[in-house]
Design a protein around this nucleic acid. Structure first.
Lengths: 331, 331
DNA sequence: CTGAAAGCGCTAACAG
DNA sequence: CTGTTAGCGCTTTCAG
């Protein structure tokens, strides 16, 4: 068995020879440009089809200095939120006839820089990026933006390039309204530190809301899911007012849920729990979660790519809460 | 603001001019080839660094007809199992100094063919693919294998190219031993239909085991998670012997868990439940799950890529069960 | 040890 | 309407 080379790559030259025209004509026809009689058009199209001509994207990219592709760099490809986003982007990109280059920066600004360079060197037409860090990613993004159009997506590193993402302030307000609506007046926030723009915006929104509603007492806990979950469990109090926990990621919510279960604390009767992102994890663990509008985020970002004179735009999108058993009696 | 072109791409020509040598020499030095005095070496290296030379992968790929990259096509990028695999592959590929092109076939053989063609045209050095379908993907894979080295990973479409994946027979035996070990003598299988090699192999292994252990009664239910879960719940019986359900994916297991909860059936006291893949979903839902050896799968496949005379190999790897609350009393 | 030159496959003037 | 030509950035003989 093994790898048998049967069909070499068909070049434009091959097509030209068989169709008895010049490579220039083949190129024009295949690019849909004018300047070819209907007769030759058909002949070229036919032979190209018969020979199975596919084109060489590397040669085209070298010549045109663009590759008809869009690059997307996510900070963590294992996170279902980002794969859901990638999935939506794929659909939108396909509709624009573009391919997607998917890259993972593994939550590391060094790797992020490498990925940005790789994609820029490959001459992607535009780069969508969800930055690893709110401040430390900005130089990389600026570097990229100086050579190709860059759009920040879901997270940003300042007003250094257009941004499309969810309105974290709106989301956090909805979340707080929901949990206070279930009768909680002690509410805690748990999530990663303020290293990403979305985390920071959520924490800011949380604090603002609390400062305006003096009847609510609050608590904030940041850190990696397991550790932060232990801390937050210590904060739980049984008294006249009911406790609520808002987790900034489904992962944090699950860590909290497991920790509370271990301590014999019941959800939702003792403590109301909800989270952000509404990934398959929230569904699996039956946790109420705020659904980011990833379909709109994807659509808008691809639109921005097409629409070249859209520099400096900042687009916030809404979203909605998906209520599950962790914040209501009946599941 | 907007997109400001400040730094054009630095070419080998630029480096050559500044260093006062020919492009040929620069190329040799940068490729680490012999044929350059230590003095010029250093000078070239220095100027390349100072100018921020990055190289043009498109030009190199055009010239060399290879791109120093590996392509990976997964059937469903939203599935945490495949992103975990991608993550491992990234690590291994990086160690070999290669970039990874990630593509998603969206469980669709048509899209799968497109993705394969795209990557082949981009001259990836090798293609790793987890086929969408056990039989319908084979022509695409054969087409690809006729032009570039192809390795089937986790799933396969016949002995048409090397394969690296888990030993499904071993895995299913371990699963059956585990659930029968908890005292169950009625056991059901739930999963997707036999459209993928792994599904088929698991079902075959299930049937073989059952036929050898006549004291166990069995049941098989295939279909999409929610529907199949309803069916399987109808099968549950309360009697002298305890029931167990083995789910072929974490998604199926979660659907089963939710359906049983709705009917007031307790896990694990009434029914023992376990699944395959051990993704973050299983962790979230506290479900015992068989962990595929994705680290070994990734390592082996990258090794096969390097080792060019490895045609026709078939490598099966083991794995282990991660026990959680769905199959034991204490969590 | 080094440079000149050819050419990978493609597109875009420019002629005809 | 069509062909000739140059060249994108790179590597690699082949001379010197």
């Amino acid at each position: 068995m093994g790898h048998i080379v049967t069909s070499p790559h068909v070049t434009i030259r091959n097509v030209a020879d068989v169709a008895n025209v010049s490579t220039a004509t083949v190129s024009r026809v295949l690019s849909g440009l004018p300047g070819a009689s209907e007769e030759t058009r058909q002949r070229v199209l036919k032979t190209a089809r018969e020979l199975g001509y596919q084109g060489d994207p590397n040669a085209t990219a070298l010549r045109l200095r663009k590759s008809n592709t869009i690059g997307i760099i996510v900070p963590d490809i294992v996170n279902p939120f980002f794969t859901a986003l990638i999935h939506e982007l794929e659909t939108c990109a396909q509709q624009s006839g573009k391919d997607l280059f998917i890259a993972n920066s593994q939550n590391d600004v060094i790797i992020e820089r490498q990925r940005v360079q790789t994609l820029a060197n490959r001459r992607v037409d535009a780069l969508l990026i969800s930055p690893v860090h709110r401040t430390m990613s900005s130089s990389t993004i600026q570097w990229a933006h100086s050579r190709i159009p860059v759009i920040q997506i879901d997270r940003h590193a300042g007003h250094i390039a257009p941004y499309v993402g969810a309105d974290q302030n709106y989301a956090m307000n909805k979340a707080l309204e929901h949990v206070t609506g279930t009768g909680c007046s002690r509410v805690a926030y748990i999530g990663y530190p303020e290293s990403t723009s979305s985390s920071k915006e959520r924490i800011d929104a949380f604090n603002t809301y609390i400062s305006r509603h003096t009847s609510i007492s609050s608590h904030i806990e940041t850190g990696l899911p397991p550790h932060a979950a232990q801390q937050i469990a210590d904060w739980i109090e049984f008294g006249e007012c009911k406790d609520a926990i808002i987790a900034s990621s489904d992962l944090h919510a699950i860590a909290v849920k497991l920790e509370l279960q271990r301590r014999g604390i019941n959800i939702p009767s003792d403590v109301v729990l909800m989270s952000f992102d509404n990934t398959s994890l929230a569904d699996a663990a039956n946790i109420t979660s705020f659904q980011q509008p990833i379909d709109l985020i994807a659509r808008k970002s691809i639109e921005l790519v097409e629409d070249s004179d859209s520099t400096g735009e900042v687009i916030f999108l809404a979203g909605r809460i998906v209520i599950r058993g962790s914040s209501q009696r009946e599941s």
